[in-house]
């Protein structure tokens, strides 16, 4: 009797183990015909990543795995270098300053040429054709601040910065083209310690009056929603940030067709279009999948 029960128990455990190990195997690995698409952790980059994914899915038999909303620039870039992902959307200015740690280059074509060459040489990564939009970093103030101080440019802002609280995402404080460089060029002295938060929460924070000045991307959807005043970078601190898919050379060698497929998007998305798509996702709360799908089918790409 006792033996029987014991056997039952052991069988039960064995069955559970087999189930769990299968689960492990399934959770762990991928295959050779898998393309992993990553993105940074904000609406626009997620939408672009989703577009790449849908475009590849509809044009090939490859299995597309989405690793969207992964984290900041450096997170995606490390993952790309390691091969945890194959493709993600990047911006020329970011590639230049944050990754290559080079000085700002004002001419967009020159910037693109430098990042294409250096990424290929140093990291084995290819920049595909730019999508058209220039999602530059810039500074914005809340409407109340604008009405009170009448600031139009960064230099205007510097004069009153002692009264204003600055806040930004964690990444901004840790890049060449970020907070420190900006402070050095314009001499900002903001009130108290700058506030740090998740990149997507900046708008809520400035909307609630928790801070007065923040860094934004020129194509962000919520600029309009929160009625922010975008300031002029009068000393030209921020470089242009043209968006393009970047892909591992290794992946491109295995699947050369990806180049033409993704280059179909080249020049298709200008600033106004991107701002509109961002608005749909970030403000109207439409799903990333449907926004990407609607855009691609309206353009006749899928």
């Amino acid at each position: 009797m006792r033996n029987k029960i014991k056997k039952k128990g052991i069988k039960l455990i064995a069955a559970a183990m087999i189930l769990m190990v299968t689960a492990l195997a399934l959770a762990g690995c991928g295959s050779d015909n898998e393309i992993k698409i990553g993105s940074k952790d904000f609406g626009e980059n997620i939408v672009l990543g989703e577009m790449f994914a849908q475009l590849i899915e509809s044009n090939t038999d490859l299995k597309v795995t989405r690793k969207l909303n992964m984290g900041g620039t450096f997170v995606c870039f490390e993952a790309l270098k390691k091969g945890d992902i194959d493709i993600y959307p990047e911006y020329t200015g970011t590639g230049l300053t944050a990754q290559l740690k080079l000085d700002v280059v004002g001419d967009p074509e020159e910037a693109y040429r430098i990042v294409s060459e250096e990424f290929d040489k140093q990291f084995g990564i290819t920049w595909l054709t730019p999508l058209g939009l220039n999602n530059t970093y810039t500074l914005a103030v809340s409407n109340e601040v604008y009405e009170k101080y009448g600031v139009e440019t960064y230099s205007d802002l510097a004069k009153v910065s002692g009264d204003l609280v600055f806040g930004a995402d964690h990444e901004f404080f840790n890049r060449q083209d970020g907070f420190e460089g900006l402070v050095n060029v314009y001499g900002f002295q903001f009130k108290g310690e700058p506030k740090k938060m998740d990149i997507s929460l900046k708008y809520q924070a400035i909307g609630n009056g928790d801070m007065d000045v923040t860094d934004i991307f020129a194509t962000d959807g919520p600029i309009r929603q929160y009625n922010l005043k975008v300031l002029t970078d009068d000393k030209g601190f921020f470089p242009p940030y043209y968006a393009a898919p970047i892909i591992r050379n290794e992946t491109l060698e295995k699947h050369p067709e990806l180049k033409d497929i993704l280059n179909q998007l080249g020049g298709m998305i200008d600033d106004a279009t991107m701002t509109e798509l961002n608005y749909l996702v970030d403000v109207e709360g439409q799903s990333v999948e449907s926004v990407a799908l609607n855009f691609l089918s309206a353009q006749g790409l899928i």
Partner: peptide
């Protein structure tokens, strides 16, 4: 804050 900065900038 420090962990987040580290995670978002690797």
């Amino acid at each position: 804050d420090l962990i987040w900065t580290g995670l978002s900038t690797y």
